[in-house]
Design a protein around this nucleic acid. Sequence first.
DNA 1: CCAAAAGTGTTCACCGTACACCCATGT
DNA 2: ACATGGGTGTACGGTGAACACTTTTGG
Lengths: 234, 234
Amino acid sequence: MVEDSWTIPDVAVAVDLAVLTVRDEALQIMLVERGIEPYAGMLALPGGFLFDDAEDIDVAAARELSEETGLTPAVLHLEQLRTYGAPGRDPRRRVISICYLAFVPDLPDPVAGGDARRAAWTPVKKALEGSAEVAFDHVRIIQDAVERARSKIEYTTLAASFCPAEFTMTDLRRIYEIIWGQQLDPRNFHRKITSVTDFLVPTGERTTRYGGRPAALYRCGPATLLHPALLRAR
Amino acid sequence: MVEDSWTIPDVAVAVDLAVLTVRDEALQIMLVERGIEPYAGMLALPGGFLFDDAEDIDVAAARELSEETGLTPAVLHLEQLRTYGAPGRDPRRRVISICYLAFVPDLPDPVAGGDARRAAWTPVKKALEGSAEVAFDHVRIIQDAVERARSKIEYTTLAASFCPAEFTMTDLRRIYEIIWGQQLDPRNFHRKITSVTDFLVPTGERTTRYGGRPAALYRCGPATLLHPALLRAR
DNA sequence: CCAAAAGTGTTCACCGTACACCCATGT
DNA sequence: ACATGGGTGTACGGTGAACACTTTTGG
């Protein structure tokens, strides 16, 4: 860190969120419709400029997430993704955007923001293939978020943060299949997951919602890392 | 991104570097001695406030790296590490620091900075164990940098960026051993590395600098990812 | 009874580890 | 000759992929 503070230009710092969920058999991302120029009417990541001069950026991200989802941030997974600072990414002025990645379960309600803005789920496929109009450099950010999610669930238990409190082995497998875009063998998947100590804790309950033999229900255990890792085919 | 630009507080944006090298059988990090308060006389990561209003943050980091090392940034590995923005991390004012991680070979000369500041190599062990006085929250940043380096060389060819242009298999193995802090079997290491296509290209030359049978010299090939990964023991 | 989903057991190929062994140099 | 480091061959144990097979429900 250098001492020439006299050269500091006028830079705005924003905290943006890439909130992912699995919904309707697809990986979806939370986007808000912009009300004003630039990019009015287009979709953008939820977020805002750094609010309080004494607020930690991690805390600011958690607050935003809570506002947008209506959920308490404690239970949700939130991690810093990357910072984007290309000049011209916002046509109004220089904006440095610190982006966070969050995984949330399929929420019962599509969520109305804490303030009046509308937040809605958009399939990642639509956002990336251009059939949804995405503002700023947010397509690039969504790409990075998805890639991070894909690799993160390989070696952590975070796939379970896309599931409700109780879920079946098949629920969890579907999460993997949807995020990775590939089929997994249900039998080998079952064995691999149960071999990870403290990942899934059986509740004793069973459900028969998919027809066929009833499946055991699980809750998340204390494990956070997958040993051994569950690798996707490349 | 939200529209209420009227709440933007006065925030300074810094770009800092965690430059790692392997030198004297140890992982070392480039630190500069601070000339002024706060933390005058203590060591800190090289870096500076965002210089040019039209300069990309990635470019700013590359420029800093070039200034500090005297090397052209093109050949060096440089990636964004994380952004640190806790309030109070700089006692003077709110500073958001975007940190970059660089891997450089053991430079012939300990490097005098582009401007007059002195940059020097400090063993990471000293910086982390407190026998070197490190300013701000930079100990935490160094921890993150080292952990990133340790895991990065597991699945990429980046360990070679710590080596000079031509190197032996043993040179490369020493890099791994020093960064991971564990011994590796030279014979299995040799076979694993040579089995990765396009990683190492033999120059045809041999060296006998360590005594014993002369070792083949290699250059880096075009490969960037290790398939299969080279995992450290845990 | 049959379909469908859950869950178990078994086979087989491959990969990492450990280590015996041979090669090529300096002294 | 022998010490030193470079490099190859091989045996063995563990893991992942594939898949046959059994279990438990609904229709």
